[in-house]
Structures are given as structure tokens and as C-alpha cells.
Design a protein around this nucleic acid. Sequence first.
DNA 1: GCAGGAAGCTAACATGGATCAGTTCTCGTG
DNA 2: CACGAGAACTGATCCATGTTAGCTTCCTGC
Lengths: 239, 239
Amino acid sequence: MIEAHIQKLRARDHLSREEEEAIRGLVGSVIEVPADKTLVRHGEQLNQSLLLVSGWLARAKDLPSGQRQIAELHVAGDFADLHAFTLKYLDHDVISVTRAEIAIVAHERLTELTERFPHLTRLYWFMTNIDAAIQREWTLSLGRRTAIARMAHLICELNTRLAIVGLVQDNSFEFPLTQVEFGECLGLTSVHVNRTLQELRRRNLIELQNRRVKIFDLEALKSVAQFDDAYLYLDKRGR
Amino acid sequence: MIEAHIQKLRARDHLSREEEEAIRGLVGSVIEVPADKTLVRHGEQLNQSLLLVSGWLARAKDLPSGQRQIAELHVAGDFADLHAFTLKYLDHDVISVTRAEIAIVAHERLTELTERFPHLTRLYWFMTNIDAAIQREWTLSLGRRTAIARMAHLICELNTRLAIVGLVQDNSFEFPLTQVEFGECLGLTSVHVNRTLQELRRRNLIELQNRRVKIFDLEALKSVAQFDDAYLYLDKRGR
DNA sequence: GCAGGAAGCTAACATGGATCAGTTCTCGTG
DNA sequence: CACGAGAACTGATCCATGTTAGCTTCCTGC
């Protein structure tokens, strides 16, 4: 059920058997939601967080004009709104990009967990800080990278994050975003997403077909993106 | 010494006398650094965090090409790298924008504090999540706002954050960034910063002279910026 | 197997902001 | 009190990306 989540944690730190059990004990009910639903609305008071079991979610911020910026994408194993545990309400929405299975974790359970396991407290604090690091990298992309580098960078990021939870085979993974949604991540219009995608294709770096990305030349793609995975903190230093 | 920091916390939650004492006990030495120094280098192993007493710091991310994006600005009362407590090393640099006084807090002290005060643990976790929310708002700015809205937004943000720690008088506050640095925050060139600043001036919204911003019409400025301070979490819900 | 809608794609044209190449201002220093 | 350096400012030009307005393809439901 939450194997992907355990894998994601294990990529960053050691877990004792007891800790793993405690984490599995967090999950209350598991629900299934359709694509394109707003699961959490900004400002709404929250007493639970969403642990994504399968499918994709996103953090979306909208401007009064209707323009949307996606601030982070979430895949299996991610807590989409763990930060709500301390924030109490969010400054963005959480939306489903695809149909998704979601394990509900009550904040009460998290309070108990954190009072029993200082180490897991630091570990989950750390996980919210990784989300912040990912958003910081997106900030750099939006501020300073060109459209093609930005797009290549996001694909490298997803490739790395999906590989951790076993969702990459042969440099290929499912990519369910429409070009409009892709643009909402990259700060681009769908027209320019289309053009940029074709340019990546033309350079024989990737292919995107039937909601699936295939990376032909990962090293070249990383170099276009100036991608360095350090910001994903894939090392076990003990937190 | 760390009054500003206490004020900033008090803007978000209640602190008991005992908790306040414990927080004051965090501070080791206090140092003074000149402007334009790299205080923390990305990747470097850390066992302390920097609590800013006076002056401005920034989180900077550089591209191999030498282009720089500033991801957040820090003013008196901010922990510039509290996230290093769990991250162990950073994915960005911390630089001084001005001469600054900095209180050094050893991570050992923080570990002790968090094991003694679960409430303060949640509070500091919360504070790192506010930093993330600020960065998310910058992401929205960079992705979807025009240059003038972005600039207006940042000024509104600073106005709000500086007011909390008592650094705003008569809608006016010290603003020590050069136009180049301002552009590094906004994802703009200094040329365009200059022009955009003139446009804000021309519309009688603000004035920037002698390293000082004066806001003439805060409501109009907020409306240009589409500014809503919800993302700064200025309410006391008990964390 | 056909209708309708969403997603993908395209071309022509518009524009916000970058780039380049300076000039002017300011202020600290000898 | 002149000089030098950094910061502020400017004009001309360019170009990456947006905008508009389609057309095409692919599903999905009936």
C-alpha cells in the first residue's frame, strides 16, 4: 500500500523495524479520486494530510485572472500536503492530475508519532524541506532557465524521483500531463510547450507519446537542463 | 538581541515564558559580517544555523553560466538556514546583502530544544514551511506575473515582513538591494528593473531613493501586485 | 461507426523583456 | 577637490515567448 512512501524515506535515511511499523500505522482510510478534482482548497482548515499511493497530484496557485502556476508535482510515495500538519491551512490548492489512490493520514496520528519518535519528526520535517528545495529549483528554472532547459530539467527531475519508487523502466515513464498542464508547471503557454517539445524531439533527446516519456539520451538531456540532483538530497546522512 | 525573532514567532503563535527563555538560550556567539560575503556554501556540511539580528541576507542559486537567482530575502528576526538543521547541507548559498549581525545557533542546541519542547518543534517546523510558502509565492510571480506586478508584489511582501519586526515607519523602509540584486530576485535584468521602477514611480505608487523605499499608495500597490498576505500565515492558530 | 469534445499541432503576428553599448550620477578616498 | 569605481540610467535593436485563430487527431460514448 504505502511501499512507495517507505522506499522514498529509505532513499534518505535508515528506518528501524519499529519506525516502519509506526509509519504504516499512520494510514486511516484509502480513497480513490478521479482526475481534475480539487482535493484541498487554499485557506480551508485541515486536520489530515494526503499520502499518494498511485496517480499524480499537483500543488496549484491561481491568480485572480485565472492564470495558474503549478508549484510542485506529486507522484506515488509523496505526502502532497504534509506541510499542512504545521500550517493548518494551505496557500495553494491540491488537485488531482490523474485518477489517484490516496491514503488519509490524520494529523492526530502525526502528533502522536512525532511525540513518540523524535527521529521520525526530524525525518518528516526534512521531507517538507525537500519539497521546499524542489520548489527552489523550480524558482531557479522560472527565473533563469530558457524554455528548453526548464523543460529538460523537469523531465530529469521526474525521471529521478520516479526511479526511486520504481516507476521508470528503460529510461521511460508515464507522463500524464496535458501540454496545458505542462505549461502551468513551466510558466509557458501550451503553444510554446508544443514547440519546445518538438525541439527536444528533434535533438533526439526525448519522445513524448501516449502519455509516456522516453528518454533517448539522459546525459545530453541533463546537460541541456544543467541538471544536478543534489537538491533532491538522495543520501543517507541520518536526520 | 533576538527581539525581532521573538516578535516574528509571536506574530504566529503563543510562547510561554519558559519557551521564550529556552529560545533565548539557543544563541551561541554573535558575529558581524561585511556585505557581499558568502556565509554558507551549497553542499557544505553544517552543524549550525544563522539567526539574523540585523542587516539583510539572501538565498542564492547560481547557474554554471554565472546567472544568479535569489530564492528568498532574509531580514532581522529570520533564521536564514533553519532548514539546514534537517537537510545537513544546502542546495543554495547564503550570502550577505548588507553588513549584518548574526547569532549562531548550534544544531545540538536545536536538537535539545526539540526534544524538550514538542510545541517549539512544531513551531520551528512551521517556520521552515512559511519560508517554503514565500518561495512558492515567488514561483507564482516568476511564472505568471508581469515584471511590474512581480516588483510590486515583492515590495508588498517586504513591507509586511518588515512591519512585523518594527522596521517600517510611515510606509517607508530601508531597501539595500542594488538594481542588479533586485533583478536577481525578480528574474529580470538590471536594465528592466530600472525601467519598471520608473513606471512604479510614474504611477505614484512608490519611490526608491537612498536605499529606502517609500510607499505612496499601499492599496493601489497591492492591487497592481495582486497581493494577498495569506501566504505569510499571520495568524495564531496554535501550532 | 459516427458525433462531439478534448488534446495536439500550426502559422502569422505581437510584445515584454533581453542585449548591447554606452552616459551620467554618487560617493568615498587620496 | 579631483578621481575612480560602482551604481543608476538610457536608447536602439533583437528575440524568446505570447497571442490569436484556426486545423487535425484521437478518444469515448452511444
